[in-house]
Design a protein around this nucleic acid. Structure first.
Lengths: 160, 160
DNA sequence: TCAATAAGTATGAAAATTCATATAAATTCG
DNA sequence: CGAATTTATATGAATTTTCATACTTATTGA
């Protein structure tokens, strides 16, 4: 990728406003753009994006409690409660009160849920690999550590 | 940023699962984390986030049509129609049919809307500067061109 | 030119989300 | 200890959002 004068001119042309170079916008728009395809795939499974996020986290570690699952899945608590209930009705997860702390409700994958999440995680891996190869030469790979660092700085709580 | 054995160990420790190092998750979570503070500020103004996005774009360029405003503001069209109607009722914008193409509806800031968007854009600038300085040394500044490149690759349509 | 198709916006009903708050259990500390 | 506080989850009403599609105007091509 050469930066001929023509291209530089081009780039300057389109960056006049505030928004198009605003970090918060770039993050939101990049997230949207990168996710669009795969999220469409997720919806074809009959899952909404938040449900997919829950399944993916449970794939990594079962038995999380609602509050924590909500934080890491970027879902507000009362909403997640309702989503989990729906997922339970669909046979994807089960809920179990925590014996040690009876306020807590822990969420576990059913066999069905586990198999679905395994499938989707595998597809997500492939999709990510494709994405990174497309962005390669650009900044695909460098992006991940930078985002992880941002997260770590801004929200250290989110660590496992 | 040195990659001492200690730090590498640290990174490995917390990255066992799939999700916590998955590009789409990192993007969504980073966007959330970076936006949380400022979006809270926006809501105190009585605006929802999508409304702020609309105001910000109109700040850069007035008279956009609904469809385009929807794409760049990351809002689905029929939702934006409703949001614009509400914003009109609140006196922030006005709608005008396009004389050339009478299907189109163009959206303009009112004086009130313009002054509110100017205020918020200024605050957004300050907030972004603070954010970048916090992330400095990390990857704050390098992030923006990388995200812009990702966007350009994945969604060239979004160009102005 | 005119029928067919596409593009832009609006609309209504169904579903999801938010917000405030209830409920219940654990923890704190005077 | 036990009242006050905090933490975890659930609930209901009000609001938003989505989805399919209607409606209107523009464009295309036979």
């Amino acid at each position: 990728m050469q930066d001929s004068p023509a291209i530089e001119q081009d780039i300057e042309d389109r960056d006049e406003g505030f928004v198009s170079n605003y970090l918060l916008y770039l993050l939101a728009a990049a997230s949207e753009a990168a996710s669009a395809q795969f999220h469409a795939r997720v919806r074809k499974t009959g899952l909404r994006v938040p449900e997919w996020r829950v399944l993916a986290w449970l794939h990594d570690r079962d038995g999380e409690m609602i509050t924590r699952l909500a934080r890491i899945s970027l879902i507000e608590q009362s909403r997640l409660t309702k989503i989990i209930i729906q997922m339970e009705e669909r046979g994807l997860v089960t809920r179990q009160g925590d014996a040690q702390d009876r306020r807590r409700v822990r969420v576990w994958l059913t066999d069905t849920g586990r198999s679905l999440s395994a499938t989707l995680v595998e597809e997500a891996r492939l999709h990510e690999a494709r994405l990174l190869s497309i962005l390669e030469g650009g900044d695909g790979a460098r992006l991940k550590p930078a985002l992880a660092a941002l997260l770590e700085t801004l929200d250290p709580e989110s660590r496992e």
